[in-house]
Design a protein around this nucleic acid. Structure first.
Length: 108
DNA sequence: GTGATGACGCAGT
DNA sequence: GACTGCGCCATCA
């Protein structure tokens, strides 16, 4: 299966998110400087279904909310994976989100 | 080619 | 802090 050009870009950024940290769609989009935050989420939607190795659970929206958990096969899986890395989830939102936030460009 | 969709983000109120 | 509306642009029908 051919992977759309945008998806591969997202995989690379998401794949370099350090464990125990999270990032937002906007930051990824800004780092890629290709499209918008919507494109990131759009790409991840296929990514999760396609590449289970992809730590898409570390990607949340600008509110720190697990907006895409419903897209995971078991929606509960996303929260489980985050807690597994030490990230606490409350009311489907990342606790201390700003502290755990990791910015791609900041990593350079 | 046209129209609608979407795991979002931001400005305005 | 909350809600509303608009922009974003690749992908799908």
């Amino acid at each position: 299966m051919k992977i759309p050009f945008y998806y591969d870009q997202v995989y690379d950024v998401v794949g370099m998110i350090p464990p125990g940290r999270v990032t937002t769609y906007g930051h990824i989009a800004d780092y890629l400087a290709l499209g918008s935050a919507r494109m990131v989420g759009y790409a991840l939607r296929n990514a999760t279904n396609m590449c289970q190795d992809l730590p898409a659970h570390r990607v949340v929206n600008h509110k720190g909310d697990l907006s895409g958990r419903a897209n995971f096969e078991p929606p509960q899986r996303m929260q489980e994976l985050l807690e597994q890395e030490g990230i606490l989830i409350e009311n489907d939102k990342v606790t201390h989100f700003k502290k755990l936030l990791w910015v791609p460009s900041h990593h350079l």
